[in-house]
């Protein structure tokens, strides 16, 4: 399977501060560089957020917040630093949403006749196969992706991050460590454990 062109964009945005127009190489201004960077990461970031949150709208909100935060707080920083910063912001947002969701489900769980969201979700395999309304969910008909999502979602949060950033985003260990806010040694440990868990969960399929 060939790599889609959209996924090459993050690397291009990270690397290129100039662009060729006709015969001359034109230096991109800050806004244009930022736009290119965000255009490159927005879709993978959305899918990563969707895998972690298992909700399309929440994933979109998380990506939007991360973009805005990066632009406002770190837009003036060198473009090379944007990618790990962006994913760090994104994962902070994802964790905040997961915490709020947990609190909400506990509160609703206390009410008579109400069930928490986690209980309503039931079997994640059924959730993926049975949701025919959300177009994004329809994409999960690809069995491999569906199983991967379920298996990744079952990982502890830090292992999820390490796997998503190292494997799915193709970051190196140093970048992943910056994005996760931990040491490179921790990244290696989280990633190794994530692969062990995924191997046992997906061994038959993969």
């Amino acid at each position: 399977m060939s790599t889609p062109a959209t996924l090459d964009a993050p690397a291009a945005a990270r690397r290129v501060r100039t662009v060729r127009r006709g015969r001359e190489e034109v230096c991109l201004d800050g806004a244009e560089t930022l736009d290119r960077f965000l255009a490159g990461v927005e879709r993978p970031a959305f899918r990563i957020a969707q895998m972690a949150l298992r909700d399309r709208d929440e994933a979109l909100d998380a990506v939007q917040d991360a973009m805005l935060h990066l632009a406002q707080s770190y837009g003036a920083r060198p473009g090379d630093e944007w990618r790990p910063l962006f994913f760090r912001i994104l994962y902070n947002g994802i964790r905040d949403r997961q915490r709020r969701r947990t609190v909400r489900s506990r509160l609703f769980g206390l009410l008579p006749g109400r069930h928490g969201r986690d209980e309503e979700e039931g079997d994640p395999f059924e959730l993926i196969a049975g949701d025919s309304v959300d177009p994004a969910r329809q994409l999960m008909n690809d069995e491999a992706m569906a199983r991967l999502e379920v298996a990744v979602a079952a990982l502890p949060a830090r292992q999820q991050e390490a796997f998503s950033l190292r494997c799915l985003q193709g970051m190196d260990v140093a970048e992943t460590a910056t994005a996760m806010g931990c040491t490179e040694g921790s990244v290696k440990t989280h990633y190794f454990r994530a692969l062990q868990s995924l191997r046992s969960a997906l061994g038959e399929v993969y």
């Binding site: 889609p4 959209t6 879709r43 994004a136 690809d142 491999a144 692969l195 993969y206």
Partner: peptide
Amino acid sequence: LERRAREAFEGSVARLDEDT
């Protein structure tokens, strides 16, 4: 496993719906 996971992920990114 890494290679197949990456392929599956990239495929799902490429097939994102227009609304998203």
